[in-house]
Nucleic acid binder design. Structure first.
Lengths: 93, 93
DNA sequence: ACTATTTTTAGAAGAAAATCAAAATAAGGA
DNA sequence: TCCTTATTTTGATTTTCTTCTAAAAATAGT
């Protein structure tokens, strides 16, 4: 299956295409092709972004026949949240 | 005064030195020199990181005589929070 | 005016990231 | 087996970041 590449979640979130992918996956899982269609980038480039999101565990992938289905796996965002919370203590709503 | 350079807050947060600066400023304002001393980087490099944090409004700076005093300005983190909250709805604690 | 202190800016080198086109892989069907 | 579809990997190019050294700017004291 695809190769994992990156582990730094902050780096993964720094790219707007990857953040957009996460937003798209919020509604439902998408195939790699569906995701690629949403951007003015080649499928190869989007595939590369997906590899990075996989690498830090923000998405998971599952094969169904020829297609790869990507879905959200946001447990990893906890780390980011934990950092941010350090700066908004007292803002409990 | 110093020149502003960057506006992308996600990009600013992607660097571990800059995140560390934010953590240091959490306790109290620091001079540029104090901050530089915390890292194994030249003062010029740390100054550059500070310029980026300034550029996206995560810190503010004030001059006192020869020294520049940096302090936290985390209102900008709201944008990041807003994004993250989209993924943890239902996790209200 | 000169000097010392603190910090930033300018310029350059190296490393890392984003992107594309082309080739490779995986799976299914004729 | 050969062909088609879906996606990834490879290799190269370009752009963007990080970092340094050296020089410049700002301020205060003598």
């Amino acid at each position: 299956m695809p190769k994992e590449v990156k582990t730094d979640i902050w780096g993964a979130l720094a790219d707007s295409t990857r953040r957009e992918v996460l937003l798209l996956l919020r509604s439902r899982p998408h195939t790699a092709g569906e995701l690629a269609d949403q951007f003015e980038l080649t499928a190869a480039t989007v595939s590369h972004h997906l590899a990075i999101l996989r690498g830090c565990g923000l998405v998971r992938v599952e094969r169904r026949a020829q297609t790869l289905i990507y879905s959200l796996a946001t447990e990893g965002l906890e780390e980011v949240f934990a950092f941010l919370r350090l700066f908004v203590r007292g803002k409990r709503k």
